[in-house]
């Protein structure tokens, strides 16, 4: 497939189909409605199914059911809808079922607004649902990256038998860019017979129970220790982009759309001879703490820019661990930090 101009939401949907996702369960919410619309038109034609659930609560449980049979499954929603899905996400993580969940973030709290935001960083990386669980969280900053992340997300979900969340803001969903989407063939993944439901015959009559209920506290602890080991194992999936950091005295950190804006500011400041670079986390969990700590060592300052009131900045402070001062600049949902504002922030630090 050649490069074509596509909207972010549609690019994510097509990328998922090309990665072998034939089942989609969802519920309409702005600003991601093009994904369920796209899926409802395409999936029946390729022998799959689109089900419009009665709520996000139901949609995520359909995802859990579909994932439990070892099938590549996706749902997409936005902020408020992800809140409703959080119960199910906790169960999916507890039962160790693979699933891909896309959050095209809008402003909050509550109904908030329908314009782009990054205010669900805490929800995605620190929980949302109950209990000690983690999601692999990936945040694209271009549509081509969104396509690649979407396709890989299915493999990561099956590899770790864990929900994977793609955290995209409303800009990522609604903007258009040239993308190339090719068929993605998964390699070296565990066969569904090894763990999924519906394979009792293939396993010679041995059944499978997927559950998160452990009434005996010793068993519950063992289950949590097992999950925790898996989350430690996931740390090797850490991904980031280090942009002009080699000689940087000021390290900027931003993810998603905000990183694109920051890149323009950095290019402008570099032309003035200001030594500024950027660490852009691509995985928000696992967070690139070690890399950030390295970069902060010897740097004058770390500036975090987000489209929220300061959430990732907490992970940055923990990573930097006092090696450089850390400050924050941001706008809440709907208003994006401008190139000039970011430049002014950096000039003020100097």
């Amino acid at each position: 497939m050649a490069r074509v101009l596509m909207k972010g939401t549609e690019a994510i949907a097509e990328a998922a189909i090309q990665a072998g996702c034939k089942y989609f369960f969802g519920y309409p919410i702005t600003p991601q409605n093009e994904i369920p619309e796209y899926m409802s038109a395409k999936l029946p034609k390729i022998g799959g199914a689109y089900v419009q659930a009665e709520s996000e609560v139901a949609a995520i449980n359909m995802v859990m059911g579909g994932g439990s049979t070892g099938t590549k499954i996706m749902t997409t929603s936005s902020s408020v809808g992800i809140s409703l899905m959080s119960e199910g996400i906790s169960y999916i993580a507890g039962c160790e079922i693979p699933a891909v969940i896309v959050n095209v973030m809008r402003g909050g709290p509550g109904l908030g607004g329908i314009l782009p935001s990054q205010a669900d960083y805490f929800q995605a990386t620190k929980g949302g649902g109950n209990g000690d669980y983690r999601l692999l969280v990936l945040a694209p900053s271009t549509l081509q990256e969104a396509v690649e992340i979407t396709q890989e997300a299915f493999d990561l979900a099956i590899k770790y038998r864990n929900p994977v969340m793609i955290l995209a803001d409303g800009f990522m969903g609604q903007m258009m860019e040239a993308v190339e989407i090719t068929e993605h063939v998964s390699k070296d993944l565990p066969k569904r017979e090894s763990w999924a439901l519906g394979c009792m015959g293939e396993r010679g009559g041995k059944r499978r129970i997927l559950k998160s209920l452990y009434l005996n506290p010793e068993n519950l602890e063992q289950h949590n220790i097992h999950l925790h080991k898996k989350y430690k194992e996931m740390e090797k999936e850490v991904r980031f982009e280090s942009f002009l950091c080699d000689d940087a005295e000021i390290i900027l950190s931003a993810f998603g759309t905000t990183a694109r804006i920051a890149r323009s500011a950095i290019n402008n400041l570099r032309r003035e001879g200001i030594k500024v670079g950027m660490l852009r986390p691509i995985t928000l969990f696992p967070f690139p703490s070690d890399k950030l700590n390295d970069l902060a060592t010897g740097a004058k300052h770390v500036l975090v820019v987000e489209m929220n009131m300061g959430q990732m900045v907490e992970d940055v402070r923990a990573a930097v661990c006092g090696k450089a001062p850390v400050s924050f600049f941001g706008h809440a949902g709907g208003i994006a930090p401008s190139v000039k504002e970011i430049e002014d922030q950096i000039r003020a630090i100097l």
């Binding site: 089942y23 369960f25 089900v51 659930a53 609560v57 139901a58 949609a59 449980n61 359909m62 995802v63 859990m64 059911g65 579909g66 994932g67 439990s68 049979t69 499954i73 119960e87 199910g88 169960y91 039962c95 439901l197 519906g198 394979c199 009792m200 059944r207 499978r208 129970i209 997927l210 559950k211 998160s212 209920l213």
Partner: peptide, 17 residues
């Protein structure tokens, strides 16, 4: 084979299966 459902959600879970 069994999958555990959250309270009230079994019909949605079963739909996905």
């Amino acid at each position: 084979d069994f999958c555990e459902a959250a309270h009230g959600r079994a019909p949605a879970l079963a739909t996905g299966i």
